[in-house]
Structure formats: structure tokens, C-alpha cells
Nucleic acid binder design. Structure first.
Ligand code: NAD
Ligand code: NAD
Lengths: 233, 233
DNA sequence: TGGTTATCGGTATGAATATATCGAATACGT
DNA sequence: ACGTATTCGATATATTCATACCGATAACCA
């Protein structure tokens, strides 16, 4: 893994898309697919912005990162734009993933067929609970966790999803690292300690909950509220 | 609703905590509770920052919004800090909520007992599927959606959770608004059109997925990557 | 055909957020 | 008891992100 690190350092500077823009791209994508099914073939930033609650300039800037080029007066081709976003996000070629922790949340994710449209296929699940191991949940086998580090490299799995209780998450992450997994989608509310080259994204539902309850606790003035509604992820 | 709006406008400016800080508070909370169970009674921003991957200054600034005051050389009292965060976020008094859409994700949320520690109690679920209505899932009744607008005001429910397919989300939101629900936690990947005074927060799992797959698609140079790991929510 | 209008793309400005710096306070060791 | 190291809290700077602006271009209409 030192090798790959070194290689990466020497690469030319990567196109730096702002994190917020990156996170808005899927929203555009959803919206555009919806428009396409409605038979709309061309669309402008103003229209997108109106429907998604964003100012047109921001939409335009975000979309520019995908490399799409629009035409004055008519905007963008909807299908081209969808393609551009999918290509940019790497949603054309599927990432296969392992999921660890077949509880409430893990089961829900396993059952979400639609992920395959967004470049994600969960191919197997892992747990430590003997009652769960050996079961098939949503057509995926539940395997013992200690098989993960061995299987991942052989199946060339690069992505791991953690839906275990917080206490177990670090140990699971360690196993994933051992299995040469490159990126981790972590639903447990803990900061994982992993080597630098591993990509970790936390999905912290409690963050959103905090925002909501804070705002609900002190009902905000509308001016402030409006601003923060726009910021809502 | 005009009345409440007007009242809100006249209120003094609300203490403006940055959205990013607000979202970090639950992370501190988790960490601190963990520390407390380990018997640690005092803690410094440097220690928190080290364990959570943040620079000490940022931790200090975030915590200051809660009104906590620390002592030089020793830092903060862990228990006081936990209290301060909980009070600040309104996690002391419970918000009761309705959940709509008892599918994969809805069921997972219904089963998450731990939410009650974070000021959230889901008291009932709603759906339109006759097969689901009348069931009890995780000790919560599944009721027909058309009862929602009537029940919410009578039970004084202010928070709604949407876990339906995207196509149904807007209609559900409309029902919630009809039932005078004040805040919506939306898991469907659509922008909801609601009156201005309603607080909406979207939990867009696809956003995170986009980040992950983008980074995975072009394995980044480490320097860039390091920065973005810190930004990972 | 020429004017009008909507829209894109690039650049400039502004706001929000993150980080650095510095003095004051407090515990700790000598 | 006194110097030293650590940390807080406040202020200042830097960076990132959002928004405003402007010229150029293409469709549309008279
Ligand atoms: N369910 C939700 O709605 C929800 C909401 C917010 C956050 N979360 C977070 O998601 C995570 C999972 O939540 P959940 O409700 O699904 O929990 P859960 O208890 O229902 O499921 C946890 C699963 O992980 C398995 N597990 C435990 N230790 C393990 C280990 N060392 N290795 C492998 N598997 C192990 C358990 O056997 C179980 O199947 C938690 O960290 C929780 O904080 C869940
Ligand atoms: N499950 C996941 O892992 C996951 C991941 C990302 C996003 N999401 C999003 O969360 C939402 C729910 O996903 P899911 O997998 O739980 O879907 P699901 O199909 O399993 O469940 C949807 C539920 O909503 C109910 N429903 C449909 N129309 C309704 C209406 N008009 N009123 C009330 N209830 C209605 C259905 O009967 C069903 O019970 C979707 O918008 C999806 O995009 C889910």
C-alpha cells in the first residue's frame, strides 16, 4: 500500500470540486431523471434552480464541474446532462460492496434494490451474531465477520459499509483495512481510525436530528430560518 | 400560521450558530458520553480534537456556542459539557414524531430505540398499503395515512419523518402540513414544496454515495484526500 | 433581417467558515 | 513559592464557498 500511496502523490493535481457541489449532483440527477420521464429534453439552470430551491448561478457552477456544455437560450440537453453526472460520479461502472452489521439499518440497506442504479451493489453481508450467520437476507448471504478479510481481496471488493453498533465499528473497520478495502461508508456515530489512504464517509443521522431539534426547540425567526432551509442538505 | 410568522419576525435575532458547528455537536456528544463511561471527568479541546480529527481551535469554538465555560489547563468538565450540549440541542425534552412509509428504511428507524436518548420518540407510523395498515411494527401501530392530518394536531405532534418512495413524498408532506406539523425529516430524494415556516431537513444518502464513488473512481492524491477526509461528515 | 430576450460561461465580489495568533489564567513540578 | 507548560477565550487572518455581475451567443419574433 506504500506503493500506491507514492503513486498517488505524484499524480497531477486532481480536479478540485467543492464538497458541497459534489453532494448536490445527485439531487440534480434525481430531478433530471424525473424530468426525462416526463418527456422534457432540454432544461435551463433557472428552471432547475426554481424547482430545487437554488439560485441559477449555483446550479450552473455545479454542473460545469461535470464538463457539460450548454447552449445559450436553451440550456442543456437533459439526457446529456444525466450522462455527464453519471459519468462524473462513476455511476456507470458498479462498485461492489460488503456490508457489516445486519441489524435494523443494515437490513434496510440490503433491501434497497435501487442502489444498483447509483453504482452500488452490495454483494454480501457479515455479522458476528450466530443467529444471523448463514441466513439469506434480501437474497444476500450473511457470513461470519472473520471471513471478510479473506474474501474481500479475492472478490476485489473496494467498498465497505458499516452498520454495526458504535462499539463494534472500529473493530470492523480494522477488518476491512486488513481486507484491503479502499473506502468505508460508516453509519456508526464514531470517528474511525484508519490509514490515511482509506476514504471514510460518515453518515451521521444524529447530525440532522440535532439540527432539527435545535430549530424546533427555539422556533426561529423567518429570516434566519429561510437561510437555513436553503442549507438543508 | 400568519400569526406565528409575524411573532417570529419580531423576535430578537436568534443566536446564530453555524450549520457546520451545529452538525458537529452530536459527534462531540457521542464522544463525551463514551469518555464518561470510561471514567474520565475532565477533558480539553486538544484531546477531543486529537480523537475526532479536528483542530483544537475548532472544537473550542463549537463548544462555546453551547455556553459552556472551561478552565485553563484542565479544560471542561465532561458531565457539564454533555449537559450543555443536550440542553443546547433540546435533547432534554422529547419530540414526538410521526413516521410515514413503513418500508425498508421506515422499519429500521422505527426499530431504533436509541433515538429516545436524543430527544426523538416515534409514536406512530402511517402507510397507504392495506397490507401494512393495522400491523404493529416495533411496538408502533401502522395507521392509514389519511388519519394523519387529524391525529397530529390532537396529539400535538410537531415532527414528521418521511420514508416513502420519492413519488409519494410530496403528497405526504402536504398531509403533514395539513396536520400542522412544524418540521419534516425527509429521506426521499426530492425537494419538498412546503410553506416557508416549515423546517425541512433532507437526509440524502445518495449524496454521500456520490462522494464515495467519485473519490473511489479517481483515487485521489493523498494531499487532496487528507483535506477531504477531514471534511467527511 | 434585425432587434429582443433568455441563457451560458467567465470573472469579481461577498459571506460563511476554518485556522492561526496572542494574552490571561490555572495547575503542576521543582 | 516560583517558574513552566498547558489551555482557554478573544481577535485576526485565511480559505472555501455562494452569489452577483457582465459580455457573448443563440433562439425567437416582428
Ligand atoms: N436503525 C436506525 O434507524 C439508526 C439510526 C441512526 C443511527 N444508526 C446507527 O447505525 C448502526 C446500526 O444500527 P441498528 O439499529 O441497525 O443496530 P442493530 O442493533 O439493529 O444492528 C446491529 C447489528 O450489528 C451486529 N454486530 C454487532 N457487533 C458486531 C461486530 N463486532 N461485527 C459484526 N456485526 C456486529 C449485530 O449482530 C446486529 O445484527 C448503529 O451504530 C446506530 O447508531 C441506526
Ligand atoms: N432503504 C434504503 O436503504 C434507502 C436508501 C437510500 C434512500 N432511501 C429512500 O428512502 C425512501 C424509502 O425507501 P425504502 O427502501 O424504505 O422504500 P420501500 O419501498 O421499502 O418502502 C416505502 C413504503 O412507503 C409506503 N408508501 C408508498 N406510497 C405511500 C404513500 N403515498 N403514503 C404513505 N406510504 C406510502 C409503501 O407502502 C412502503 O411501505 C425512498 O425514498 C428511498 O429513495 C432508502
Amino acid at each position: 500500500m506504500n506503493i500506491s500511496n507514492t503513486l498517488q502523490v505524484n499524480r497531477p493535481a486532481v480536479q478540485p470540486i467543492p464538497q458541497p457541489s459534489l453532494k448536490r449532483l445527485p439531487q440534480y440527477h434525481h430531478y433530471l431523471v424525473d424530468m426525462e420521464t416526463k418527456g422534457i429534453t432540454r432544461i435551463s439552470c433557472s428552471a432547475i434552480g426554481r424547482d430545487l430551491g437554488l439560485v441559477p448561478v449555483q446550479v450552473r457552477k455545479d454542473l460545469q464541474y461535470t464538463g457539460i456544455i450548454g447552449k445559450p437560450k436553451t440550456g442543456y440537453s437533459v439526457s446529456e446532462l444525466i450522462q455527464a453526472i453519471e459519468k462524473f460520479l462513476g455511476w456507470n461502472n458498479v462498485n461492489e460492496a460488503f456490508l457489516v452489521g445486519v441489524g435494523n439499518l443494515g437490513t434496510a440497506l440490503l433491501g434497497h434494490e435501487r442502489f444498483s442504479k447509483f453504482g452500488l451493489r452490495i454483494v454480501a453481508a457479515f455479522d458476528t451474531d450466530p443467529a444471523k450467520i448463514g441466513q439469506w437476507i434480501h437474497q444476500k448471504a450473511v457470513l461470519p465477520l472473520d471471513k471478510l478479510a479473506d474474501l474481500a481481496p479475492r472478490m476485489n471488493i473496494l467498498l465497505g459499509i458499516i452498520t454495526t453498533p458504535a462499539e463494534a465499528a472500529q473493530a470492523v473497520a480494522d477488518e476491512m483495512v486488513k481486507g484491503c478495502i479502499q473506502a468505508i461508508w460508516n453509519f456508526a456515530p464514531v470517528k474511525l481510525k484508519v490509514p490515511e489512504h482509506i476514504i471514510v464517509h460518515n453518515e451521521d443521522l444524529y447530525s440532522t436530528l440535532a439540527s432539527l431539534s435545535w430549530k424546533l426547540a427555539r422556533r426561529l425567526g423567518v429570516t434566519v430560518q429561510e437561510k437555513q432551509e436553503k442549507e438543508a442538505v
